[in-house]
Amino acid sequence: MTASTDAAIVKLEDVHLSFGQTQVLKGIDLTINKGDAVSIIGPSGSGKSTILRCINALVTPQSGKITVAGTRVDQLTKESERIQLRKRVGIVFQQYNLFPHLTVLDNIVLAPIKILGADKTATVKLARELLEKVRLSEKADAYPGQLSGGQQQRVAIARALAMKPELVLFDEVTSALDPETVGEVLWVIRDLIRDGMTSILVTHEMRFAEEISDTVVFTENGRIVDHGSPQQIFHSTNNPRIRQFVGGLSGGGRGAVRDGEGI
């Protein structure tokens, strides 16, 4: 990773975390610069989601330092302090989790207006711009139940962006989607990254990760086994486990077929 620590927006140093007896993170070191797109790949249960949850204080590690946008996350003791952090860090989940009782537009404006106290007119305007960005302008008044999975996930991304976050975490946001709708969601994320949004993605879409990432991180068994440019991780690694993992996934055609064409 680049040497300039001034630009670091996320910094994890020797982070250890266990749930009860289970050690989940066994010393994670990770530095992410402002404007970077970082993909975290690795086998199931290796701790990818847990790393994201540490970054926005949904879980607290037992030891280690976590700095996010100038805040020492590991030192936050009060829930109210963690809430302050979460307002600045967007997260999008695998199960988009839209609020089913609200229209698409209301889903997007609820948190900015009620939680940040943002101006209503300005927020609605922002929400409409975001809907345009995720290509769902015509769905503003629809309810989540009337949308496809891909459409719902794009609304969830717009909802996270409406908080004007300093970085966005994506946790396998395409894993629950029908293959046909994966592309439209990746398209939106690609756009976002091109606009310079700092993004951390946990993903199984290898082709996509290779295309958009500045850095790829491979996790296994609670450790970061390797990290580097997409070229390094996907094509010139010496680590047999990574080769096997990457080969196994893209060889199966999932990433290769889903991504790329028509988007």
């Binding site: 829930e79 307002k87 609020f99 948190a111 908080m163």
Partner: peptide, 25 residues
Amino acid sequence: TTQWEATKGLGFSRLQALRYVILPQ
């Protein structure tokens, strides 16, 4: 619980989540 998770990720407090998201449902 995913509804609670979504509110948490957006910076809702527990009471705000109840008031704006959970109770209306």
